[in-house]
């Protein structure tokens, strides 16, 4: 039942799969970035009252950076059953992406915060700025240009890692390749088409990420 790889049905099928790949990556990494930002800032507080939270954040980051994404996917699939038995597989995979991305992005955001020179913070302190004002008006604006390029690069990289969600049965790009091959396309055609689609997404996104890096490096002060 080998059909035409470029038939409208096949193309629509691949486009829908590509959409799921991008959805998982974008939603997962965006939420992961926001939570990662909170965790990174939390880990750099000094209040004794927050010590247990700091400890929990550190534990979280260390744990999720040391478990393969495939194992995280499987664990999330089964543990989510208790909370949300009706959640779609795509939703489950997106949670797994969020959990993994949060851990890595916490480190990326943290490195950006640490890159702001200590004297900048001391200056804010002697001018009587509050912790929050220092963060908002001095630290974050300067950390931003250090954080964004690797965070964008991470998101582009994760587009590829979501291929593992095919194991859960999410019909994303890699699984779409498998389905095409099971339908009778040759493995070279089926997987090759999928490989090209990944490259077509990843390459321009990667270029955007690195141009972001050089642009931000050029205008350090803004």
């Amino acid at each position: 039942m080998s059909g035409d790889l470029f038939s409208p049905e096949t193309l629509a099928f691949l486009a829908a799969a590509l959409g799921r790949t991008l959805w998982m990556t974008f939603i997962g990494c965006t939420i992961g970035f926001v939570i990662g930002m909170v965790l990174a800032i939390l880990r750099r507080t000094r209040a004794p009252l927050l010590a247990p939270l700091r400890w929990a954040a550190a534990l979280y980051v260390e744990t999720f950076r040391r478990i393969p994404f495939l194992v995280i996917l499987i664990l999330v699939l089964f543990s989510v059953q208790a909370f949300a038995p009706d959640l779609s597989l795509l939703g489950i995979a997106t949670i797994a992406v969020t959990l993994a991305a949060t851990a890595y992005l916490t480190e990326i955001v943290g490195a950006g915060l640490d890159a702001v020179p200590r004297p900048q913070i001391e200056s804010a302190e002697v001018l009587g700025l509050s912790w929050f004002d220092t963060l908002r008006h001095v630290v974050l604006p300067q950390a931003w240009s250090v954080i964004l390029p690797p965070a964008a690069a991470f998101m582009v990289m994760f587009v590829k890692d979501t291929a593992l969600a095919s194991h859960l049965g999410v019909v994303e790009l890699a699984f779409a390749g498998k389905i095409l091959v099971n339908k009778g396309f040759s493995p070279l055609a089926g997987f090759g088409a999928v490989l090209v689609l990944y490259a077509l997404i990843s390459w321009p996104l990667g270029r955007i990420a690195s141009s972001l890096e050089s642009r931000l490096a050029a205008s350090r002060h803004r």
């Binding site: 900048q120 001391e122 009587g128 700025l129 004002d133 008006h137 001095v138 002060h221 803004r222």
Partner: peptide, 26 residues
Amino acid sequence: SIVFQQFNLFQNLTVLGNLTLAPVRT
């Protein structure tokens, strides 16, 4: 108030921003 050897101006703010941030906020 203090002035440091290395100036330590806020790199992300204009000269005016450096001079108005603390008076406005604190």
